[in-house]
């Protein structure tokens, strides 16, 4: 087995992994629809729409600290 062959296997394995991860991510996004904190992903659009410094964050860092 020379370096080129190793390279080919390595390439294939890594690409396959990344493809699986990407599709897993698609499945995850559309099946769960909500992230770990229970926020709907689409809520995050509000990070741009309500971005005044006085607006309430979609998920505040300080929430974590209070727990």
């Amino acid at each position: 087995m020379d370096i080129a062959e190793l390279q080919a296997y390595g390439y294939f394995a890594l690409t396959a992994t990344l493809v699986v991860v990407l599709y897993g991510y698609i499945y995850h996004l559309y099946s769960k629809k909500k992230d770990a904190d229970g926020h709907d992903y689409e809520d995050y659009s509000n990070m741009a729409l309500k971005d005044d410094i006085t607006d309430t964050p979609v998920s505040a860092v300080s929430d974590d600290k209070e727990k």
């Binding site: 990407l22 991510y25 698609i26 996004l29 559309y30 992903y41 689409e42 809520d43 995050y44 659009s45 509000n46 741009a48 729409l49 971005d51």
Partner: peptide, 17 residues
């Protein structure tokens, strides 16, 4: 674009993908 138009991104999930 969302900010100027006041519209939420059509699909935030798609943007992540």
């Amino acid at each position: 674009l969302p900010k100027e138009s006041g519209q939420a991104i059509y699909s935030y999930k798609l943007s992540l993908l």
